[in-house]
Structures are given as C-alpha cells and as structure tokens.
Write a protein that binds this DNA or RNA. Structure first.
Length: 677
RNA sequence: GCCGGCGUAGCUCAGUCGGUAGAGCAGCCGCCUUGUAAGCGGCAGGUCGACGGUUCGAAUCCGCCCGCCGGCUCCA
C-alpha cells in the first residue's frame, strides 16, 4: 500500500502507508528530515491547513508542507515557544514538586506559563529554573502525543475514581480545562472529544500541540526567562492569582541577542525617560497619574495643537470650551451615572452633588441647546480640546499612556440622519490625513458594536452600526470587527496607528450616536417647520493629546521632526568674541519667522549657548537634547557671514547664513517629516 | 484593585554584621576662550519615601501607609 501527498510546489510524493510527516521529510532529503519540526497538512476533504507533529501519520491525498524553524515563519516560532513553555513548566515542577500548572501559551516574542506555587518566587529563581531547563534540554526527551478518552485524561491529572492521583498528581486547573472542553462540546451538540496530552520525560501536559520532536531541539543560548508577574486564573480578578513566568526564545542565539538589544533600545526611547531628559513633563507623588507639562513640553503640545486647530478650521469645524465640573444630575440624564460612575470623580458645591467630567459630550450638548437650531445650521461640527478626568485603577497608570486626566481632541458633529454617512466618511479621511502629517501611515481600523451596558433602542443601534459598516465598506477599508466593544451610547470605528517599532496604539475614534440627542432632548427645526432629532457623531483624532505625545516621542525616539521640536536651532559661538554674531544669527531666525507669519506668529525656537563650557561639551549637550540644527560660529563664519551646520548629529559644513535660515524655516513651515524616523 | 519587585542628593548608583551616609553626572563659584559628543579646580546638596515598632543605637530588622516599575490583553 502506498499513499500520495502533494508538496507545496505541486510535486507529488509517494510514501508507504502509515508514513509520517517525518518520513515525508526524510524522503525529500536527510537535511530536511533533521530540520523538520512540524508539518502543515491540508486533508483531501478539508480546506484549512493544520499544523501537526512530525510524528503525525499522513493520509492519501494530503497536501503537505514541512515546517522548519525560521524567524519569518510565525507558526514555526509558535511551536518553538510552546515547547519552551513546556520545558520551563517541567523545570518548575522539578524545583517545586507541589506546583500546580495551568496554561502556558506562546506569545508574541516569547512564552509564559502560569503556576500556583507552594511559595513565592523571586527574580533570582529564574536562573535556577533556566539551569534546570538546560538539563531537560540536554536529556533530550522526545515529546509524545497521546489521545485519551475524557475519563483517562481526568485521571492523568489527578481526578480519578476514589481520588486516585494520576501520574501528574492532582492538577485542578487541568481538570477544570478538560471539564470545560467537555461541556463546550456538549453545549455545541458535538460529540465529546478525545483529549490530547503531551509527555516529555516525567512531565505530562494537556495540550493541543504540535511540539518540537524533542526537548533537545531548544538551542543553547537561544532562550531566556525574562520576568515574573501575577496573573489571574483565566484573567478574571475574582479567581486565584497565579504566578506567571515569562520567557523568550528564538531560533538562534543571534536572534535572541537582537531581540534583547531591541528591548534595550525600546527602554532608551521610553517616553517617560525622554520626558525627563528633554525636560518636557514630570510626575509627582502629589498627583499620581496627573502629568505636569514643562515649558518645553508645552512647546511640543502647542505645535501639535496649532497644527490641529488650523486643520480643523479648514475642515469646517468651530471650537468650544466647556466646564470641568457639572451637576451630577446632568450625568444622570446623559447615562454616565449608570454606565460610567466607577470611573468618575465626584464633589460637592454648596452641598449639591457635582461630578468632574469624564467626557465632553454632555457639556457640548448644553452648548447646542443654548439656542434653537435650524436644519440650515447642520451639519454643525463643534470641536473641543477638552480635559477629562477618569479614575483608573492605580496599577494601570503608565507615563503619558495611561493617566487620570487627559485632553481629548474631541468634536461633536450634529447632523440630520441623511447627512450622517457623509459626515462619517469625511471624518475618516480627515483622520488619516492628520495621522500622515505626524508620520503615521500604517493605520489599523476596528468596528466595535453594542456592549452589554448601553443606552438606546435596538433599532438605533442597528442603524448606527449599519452606517459605520457601510462607510468602511464603500471606502474599501479593511477592518476588524470587535463585537460588544462599543461606547455605551453608540458603536464606533477605532483607529490604531502602528509606530516604528511595530506596536499599535489606539488613537482615533468615530462614534455614531442616536441615543444622547434623545437623552438630552436636542432638536432642530426642519424645512417643514417641525422639530426633528439630530444625530450626533463623537470623534477624536489623536485621542488623548498626552498619549499621542508619548507615542510621538517613542516613535521618533525623541528626534522629533523639526516642526515639533521644542528647541529647533541651537547656536554655539566658539569663543566669547563670537557671541554677538551668534545672537545675530538667532535674531535672523526670529525675524524670518515673523516675516512669514508662521503659525499665527509662533516663534522659532532658537537658543544661543554662550556658556563658558568647551565647544565639545556644548555640542554634546545639544545632541543629547536632540536639537535638530546646531549652528557653530567662529572667526571664519563671522567673517564670511556663514554658519557651520550640524544637522541631527551630522556635520554638514559651512553654509551661507541666509540660505540656512530659509531652508530651516521652509522645513518647519511645511511640517516636513524626517526621511527615516 | 490584585500579584511580584523596588524606593539612599535633581539623575544614575555604592553603603559589609544594626554603630545616624558616599561617588559620578547635573547645580553653584572661579579659572580656561575653546573648531564639532564630557577642559580644570573648588563649593554646596540627604528627616536614607511617610508613620509606627524592636533596640543602648535603625538607611539596615518588623508592621502599616504612600509612590514607582513589571504583569494581570495573547488561553490545552
């Protein structure tokens, strides 16, 4: 008997009956057989490829791809990391025999495993665990898959007749997982599945697989345990807190080293460090989660907002400003009291209950209601750079990324139902335009629908969700559906930008809302002289100005585009006798800025450092402060009316003063981005 | 909020066995007048996060509180 499989290039392969993935690899070549870690198999009858062990038998008609370990094959990395997590668990079980193990998946860049340990462990235990892992790797245990009926699987993990502890000892988390698999199958009306388990040496784990063929396949020096953390069983804070151990592993030592180096790079461009080093903002014990912006931070802030404001005027927006604290009764009417009060701060004025605003919309609605509105006024696009306060759990605060007060670049668009779709479309394009200006062109989009806690009728929600989906589809924009993740008053389109390090950040949002206009009873007079209910769009582009600033800082590693830099030009006189000329240079920049009326007369940020430090010292200081242009002036420059240009650390030599001023001013005015951040 | 770790000068960090603190950088003063990433010298700077306890004596040991860092999203 023979069986026939097809390889990825379409070529056929004939094998003996009962041949495995490994046999197929061996039939192709001995090197491939040695390198094979799994197979990607598509059965003759089913469509999706499945990842299987090298020991898995093949069937006639299968299409097979041999998986080898490659950094650019995410599935191969997953197999590697998943096996590493099992090896780690085995090591932990050896060191702490009473440990209960729960789950241990591969994650981006590594893996973790959650344990309930008989005693707390500390960072220094990681080295012991790594040492034990090394032994297990050296022992080179084969990973053996077994398919067990449910009762046998339960017995394996210590739940058997008369409480007999199975080979793995009592493992309550595994038992719970198996029982859940059974009840999930029953609920779906499917047959009770067999349970797959993997063993390597004395260690057995409930696992879907696949795994590396043996523990010896973890390369020496390719893995490292990175941290210990608490994690709730199944991510639910009502459950037991387990100990999670994180690790990372790569196909080669070099890739691990590169990853660790990248981590260090990320640490260097952490916005919290840059905020301090560049004197942009600070945090204080007196106000945890409440950032303080310094003068240079405000320069960056204002550069962002000046641009933002000019674009909004051009896009037909007006701007309002509403109070921080409003009567609690307003928040009860808007639905925030019922849906959001856990995140709100409350206070009293003259004995009456008030709340600090967590959102700008109710205040904005009061502005709308301050006079009668006509259909001729619509659509009304009303922006608000509004500071909101939200009570976040203390453990989640993180620099500018997660704070307790922040500033939304909010806007509310009031329109007729007929105008809604066009307005959403307009905001969508506006959003992408603004991101591009800051240097973000890779944007991920999600559509979030009705959450459990919400206001408004089913019909409203259906309409609103329909409009958002329709816009995305008509614009042919790929998006991911996020069911149940909408705001309590309406569905939303969320925008995630990807930074230079590949991380994504949620920034913008567009929310269609039929509920709030009804709640706060706003209306407009139609052409028919009747009162009608407008629809409103809530939207933010940057989301939180603070957060966006943090993202910008990390994206550019502090080397901001010149138009955003808090100090744009630094002039360094070589000796005291050049100080007057240095100040002339600075004045020329300021005069030029005034002449072109930049950003409503915003100054160019030029500084002269004529301190008595050595030139090398002052250059170093300017570089550390990430000033884009350092202009050195000495006898030669003064005589020729030139400056010696050092642009972002690169000495560009002498250039005529006027030309440099014009070039730099053009770069700022055009808000030019850097070639490569 | 929960789990783990941490908290010494503005920053980065030493500080042994419990005997009341030290460096570099930054700051200030002076000298140097500088040619593309740290010139030289001096001075000053600390209720050792807060409070309570143990002790003849606490930065050090114990308790509690505050803050910071990592994680709690990735699911056999």
């Amino acid at each position: 008997m023979t069986l026939h499989v097809t390889l990825p290039d379409g070529s056929p392969l004939e094998l003996d009956d009962g041949a495995t993935v490994y046999d197929a690899a061996a039939a192709i070549g001995p090197r491939l057989a040695k390198a094979a870690i799994a197979g990607r198999v598509t059965g003759a009858s089913d469509g999706d490829p499945k990842l299987v062990d090298v020991t898995a038998p093949l069937h006639d008609g299968d299409t097979l791809a041999i998986v080898t370990l490659k950094a650019d094959d995410p599935e191969s990395l997953e197999v590697l990391r998943h096996t590493a997590s099992h090896v780690m668990a085995q090591a932990v079980l050896r060191l702490w025999p009473g440990a209960k193990y729960s789950i241990g998946p591969a994650i981006e860049n590594g893996f973790y495993y959650d344990f309930q340990l008989p005693e707390p462990i500390v960072e220094s235990d990681l080295a012991r665990i790594e040492a034990e892992m090394q032994k297990i790797v050296a022992e080179d245990h084969a990973t053996v898959r077994a398919e067990l009926p449910v009762d046998e699987a339960l017995a394996t993990f210590g739940k058997g007749p008369a409480g007999a502890a199975g080979p793995a000892g009592p493992q309550p988390f595994k038992v719970e997982l198996i029982e859940d698999l059974v009840s999930a199958a029953e609920a779906a009306g499917e047959p009770v599945p067999t349970i797959s388990v993997y063993s390597q040496g004395e260690f057995t784990d409930l696992c879907r697989g696949p795994h590396l063929p043996s523990t010896g396949r973890l390369g020496k020096g390719t893995y490292k345990l990175t941290s210990i953390a608490g994690a709730y069983w199944r991510g639910d804070e009502r459950n037991a807190m387990l100990t999670r151990i994180y690790g990372t592993i790569f196909p080669s030592k070099e890739e691990l080293a590169a990853y660790l180096e990248a981590l260090e790079m990320a640490r260097q461009r952490d916005h919290r460090r840059l905020g301090r080093d560049l004197d942009l903002f600070s945090f204080h014990d007196e106000g945890p989660g409440f950032p303080f912006f310094h003068p240079k931070g405000m320069r960056l802030w204002n550069a962002m907002i000046d641009f933002w404001r000019a674009e909004h005027v051009a896009a037909g927006y007006d701007e309002v400003r509403t109070p921080q604290i409003l009567r609690r009764e307003l928040w009860e009417r808007s639905g925030h009291w019922d849906n959001y009060k856990d995140n709100m701060y409350f206070t009293q004025i003259d004995g009456n209950p008030y709340a600090v605003k967590p959102m700008n919309c109710p205040g904005g609605l009061l502005v709308y209601k301050s006079r009668r509105r006509s259909y001729r006024d619509l659509p009304m696009r009303v922006a608000e750079v509004g500071q909101v306060h939200r009570h976040e759990m203390s453990g989640v605060l993180h620099g500018l990324f997660r704070v307790r007060y922040f500033t939304q670049d909010d806007a509310h668009i009031y329109c007729t139902p007929d105008q809604l779709e066009d307005e959403v479309r307009g905001v969508l394009h506006f959003m992408l335009h603004i991101y591009a200006a800051f240097g973000f062109s890779d944007v991920k989009i999600e559509l979030s629908t009705r959450p459990e806690k919400s206001i408004g009728s089913d019909e409203m929600w259906e309409r609103a969700e329909g409009v958002l989906a329709r816009v995305l589809e008509s614009e042919e924009i790929a998006y991911q559906l996020n069911p149940g993740d909408g705001a309590f008053y309406g569905p939303k389109i969320d925008f995630h930008i990807r930074d230079v390090m590949g991380r994504t950040w949620q920034c913008g949002t567009i929310q269609a809302d039929f509920a709030m206009p009804e709640r706060l009873d706003i209306s407009y007079t139609g052409a028919d002289n009747e009162e009608h209910r407008p629809v409103m769009i809530h939207r933010a582009l940057l989301g939180s100005i603070e957060r966006f600033m943090g993202i910008l800082l990390e994206h550019y590693g502090g080397n901001l585009p010149t138009w955003l830099a808090p100090v744009q030009v630094l002039v360094l006189p070589i000796a005291d006798r050049h100080a007057a000329y240095a100040r002339d240079v600075a004045r020329l920049f300021c005069g030029a800025a005034e002449a072109v009326g930049m950003s409503g007369g915003a100054p160019v940020w030029v500084e002269v450092d004529d301190s008595s430090e050595s030139l090398g010292k002052r250059i170093r200081e300017g570089q550390l402060q990430k000033v884009p242009y350092i202009l050195v002036v000495g006898d030669r420059e003064q005589k020729d009316r030139t400056v010696s240009v050092r642009e972002r650390g690169v000495d560009k030599g002498d250039a005529p003063l006027e030309c440099v001023v014009t070039d730099v001013m053009d770069e700022i005015r055009e808000r030019r981005l850097l070639a490569a951040p």
